[in-house]
Design a protein around this nucleic acid. Structure first.
Length: 420
RNA sequence: GGAGGCGUCGCCUAGCCUGGUUUAUGGCGCCCGCCUGCUAAGCGGGUUGAGGGCUCAAACCCUCUCGCGGGUUCAAAUCCCGCCGCCUCCGCCA
């Protein structure tokens, strides 16, 4: 949700943002009109209400004829107040509904355009030169690490078992991620992965991508697609003290995604699955500090990429490909040798005050309270296994273990295929 | 799943039965000031949040806010209904 005051005072900025995203520009004028209607009906209600209260105050003191006069006048105004209140509530509701429509105002410098109009900020590391290229599933099966057949048998398409070194490798990635986060001052957090509707709505996931989300109907709860959701809800309706700097959390959780509408895409292996694990960074900070915090999250992601020794590039996502909550988004894509393309491994978004406003997260300042900014970023996921296996494969199907992961894998330097 | 209790401005708490002079009481904490070699104590004042009006901005004014949402009434923290959350006990399960 945008700041109503911003819409009122600088509608052109909102229009420009909507235009850059390729979304409705007219909505701004609809909002301005609805805001005008809302305020005028509110003023009318408040005027009548004040009058009603003034009369009500005189009634207990009055007697006889005077009291009867006051009572009849009170009765009259009571009906007027009721009508004015209903009108004001209706205007407010109309405004609230419209206010949810515009996406976040993009940060200056975000490339305009759609999915393919991203800007590559940098490319780091060399793509491996491989004599033979096996894809991650072939490698994973050879290592007895990934079993998608049994995953499908037990749970259906896009489910899998990680076994042996596969399970250990996932834990290694996630442990390295959480240790990195702790080292950077994040509070390690294991959040609930089922949340109430208002939390899911507040984070903006029930908008355009609502059919991506699993819903547990019997209990009216949603399964989260990322721990961003419970971490954003963690401080909902709270007033924070950010005088000591941003509040930073690193959530470790299972993530669930329906992947509706992605039929036939990434069907092989574990690139696109219904359930995976992720360590996610989440920061609450002052809006003025949000851009710096975004760079900090990106730097930590790059630190992780270096640690797992993957060639990658950083892209600045174009306006039209941002989620509705994000004002800017950087993705890190690792090289995927089997398909000779880049594969998204992390994504970090600056949501500015968009998410926090919906969730009622504010901070105390000298002059009152104000909405904070929220940011999130990936520090490790199950998908990283894909890039690690493929980039570090050797000719015989064994896989070199990056030094940073070895402590989490019993010191092993090499994962070898199971021949038996 | 069953029974009972509770939800008041950061924390604790009065008010609810018996609706209106309540601008929601008092304490703690916190902030400002006074006093005092310093500190503590003492004294005085301030201290929920949201929205709107006026304004360059403030001061100021108004409305809403006693878990949430309805209802009754001229008038609701107070009466009625529904919901949510927490606690205790019982049952069931791990």
């Amino acid at each position: 949700m945008l700041d109503p005051q911003l819409i009122r005072e600088d509608p052109d900025r909102v229009r420009a943002s909507q235009r850059a995203r390729g979304e409705s520009v007219d909505i701004v004028d609809q909002l301005l009109a609805a805001d005008e209607a809302r305020r005028s009906s509110l003023t009318e209600f408040e005027r009548l209400r004040a009058e009603q209260k003034a009369i009500g105050k005189q009634i207990p003191r009055a007697t006889g004829d005077e009291k009867q006069t006051l009572l009849s006048r009170a009765k009259e105004i009571s009906a007027q107040v009721k009508a004015a209140e209903a009108a004001a509530a209706e205007a407010q509701q109309r405004f609230d509904e419209l206010a949810l429509i515009p996406s976040n105002v993009v940060v200056d410098g975000v490339p305009p355009g759609g999915e393919d109009d991203y800007v590559v900020l940098r490319e780091v590391g060399d793509k491996p030169e491989l004599p033979t290229v096996r894809d991650h599933l072939e490698l994973g099966e050879g290592l007895r690490a990934i079993d998608t057949e049994r995953g499908a048998k037990v749970s259906g398409a896009r489910f899998y078992f990680l076994t042996g070194v596969g399970a250990q490798l996932e834990l290694a990635i996630l442990n390295l991620a959480i240790d990195t986060a702790i080292g950077a001052g994040f509070v390690p957090t294991i959040p609930p992965t089922m949340v109430r509707p208002e939390i899911m709505r507040g984070t903006g996931f029930l908008g355009a991508h609502a059919d991506e989300v699993y819903r547990v109907e019997a209990d009216d709860l949603y399964l989260v697609g990322t721990s961003e959701v419970p971490l954003a809800g963690y401080h909902s309706d709270e007033i924070l003290d950010l005088s000591g700097g941003p509040l930073r959390y690193a959530g470790w959780s299972a993530c669930y995604r329906r992947e509706a509408g992605s039929y036939g895409k990434d069907t092989r292996g574990i690139i696109r699955v219904h359930q995976f694990h992720k360590v996610e960074m989440f920061s609450y900070c002052r809006e003025a500090d949000a851009a710096d915090e975004h760079e900090r999250l990106l730097a930590l992601e790059e630190q992780m990429m270096a640690a797992v020794e993957l060639p990658y590039r950083v892209i600045d996502t174009a306006a039209g490909d941002l989620g509705s909550s994000a004002a800017r988004k950087f993705d890190i894509e690792a090289w995927l040798p089997s398909q000779a393309r880049w594969l998204e491994l992390t994504s970090t978004s600056n949501c500015t005050t968009f998410q926090a406003r919906r969730l009622g997260v504010r901070e105390r300042t000298e002059h009152g309270t104000r909405t904070v900014a929220t940011l999130n970023g990936t520090l490790g996921t199950t998908r990283w296994i894909v890039a690690i296996l493929e980039n570090h494969q050797l000719a015989d199907g064994s896989v070199h273990v990056p030094a940073a992961l070895r402590p989490y894998l019993g010191g092993r330097e090499l994962l070898k295929p199971v021949t038996a």
